Simulated assay, not measured.
Amino acid sequence: MTDLWIAFVMGIVEGLAEFLPISSTGHLILVGHLLGFEGERAKTFEIVIQLGAILAITVLYRNRLVSLFNIKPILQREKKFNALHILMGILPFGTVGVLFHDAIKTYLFRPETVVIGLLAGAALMLVAEKKKPIPTTHSLDEMTYRQALLIGCFQCFAAWPGFSRAGSTISGGLLSKVSYKATAEFSFLVALPVMVGVTGLDLFKSREHLDVADIPMFLVGFGTSFVVALLAVVTFLKWLERLGLTPFAYYRIVLAVLFTVFVLL
Score class of each variant (00 low, 15 high):
Val261Leu: 13
Glu78Asn: 08
Leu231His: 06
Val233Cys: 06
Leu51Gly: 09
Lys72Ser: 14
Gly32Thr: 00
Val115Asp: 00
Leu35Val: 05
Leu237Met: 14
Ile6Ala: 04
Leu51Asn: 01
Arg207Thr: 13
Val48Gly: 02
Leu55Ile: 06
Arg62His: 08
Thr235Tyr: 15
Leu108Asp: 06
Gly221Ala: 05
Thr136Ala: 11
Leu118His: 07
Arg242Val: 13
Ala56His: 00
Leu175Arg: 01
Glu241Lys: 13
Leu55Glu: 06
Phe37Gln: 10
Leu35Thr: 02
Leu150Tyr: 14
Leu34Asp: 09
Phe186Tyr: 12
Ser139Met: 09
Lys80Phe: 13
Thr144Met: 09
Phe188Ala: 04
Ile90Thr: 00
His101Gln: 12
Val212Met: 11
Gly89Met: 06
Leu75Thr: 00
Glu185Pro: 14
Ala232Asp: 09
Glu208Trp: 10
Val127Ile: 14
Phe218Thr: 01
Gly39Lys: 13
Met143Gln: 12
Phe93Thr: 00
Val13Asn: 01
Val114His: 03
Leu126Lys: 05
Arg64Cys: 10
Lys131Asp: 12
Ser24Met: 06
Phe157Asp: 00
Thr199Met: 11
Ser206Thr: 12
Ala166Glu: 06
Ile253Ser: 05
Leu203Gly: 14
Leu189Ala: 01
Tyr250Ile: 02
Val257Gln: 07
Leu20Tyr: 10
Tyr180Met: 15
Arg165Ala: 05
Tyr180Ser: 12
His85Cys: 01
Val66His: 06
Ile86Trp: 05
Lys79Ala: 14
Arg165Phe: 07
Phe100Asn: 00
Val98Pro: 10
Phe69Gly: 00
Ser187Arg: 03
Val234Thr: 14
Lys177Phe: 15
Gly197Val: 02
Leu75Pro: 00
Gly167Asp: 03
Tyr61Thr: 06
Thr106Lys: 10
Val233Ala: 05
Pro247Thr: 12
Thr137Ile: 13
Gly89Leu: 06
Pro161Gln: 07
Gln155Asn: 07
Ala184Asn: 05
Ala232Thr: 15
Lys43Trp: 13
Phe154Glu: 00
Lys79Gln: 14
Thr246Val: 15
Ala83Arg: 03
Asp141Arg: 04
Asn63Cys: 05
Pro216Leu: 12
Phe163Cys: 01
Thr183Met: 09
Ala103Lys: 05
Pro111Val: 11
Leu150His: 12
Pro133Val: 07
Ile57Arg: 00
Phe226Tyr: 08
Val233Ser: 04
Lys79Tyr: 14
Ala42Gln: 09
Thr246Cys: 12
Phe19His: 01
Ala123Pro: 07
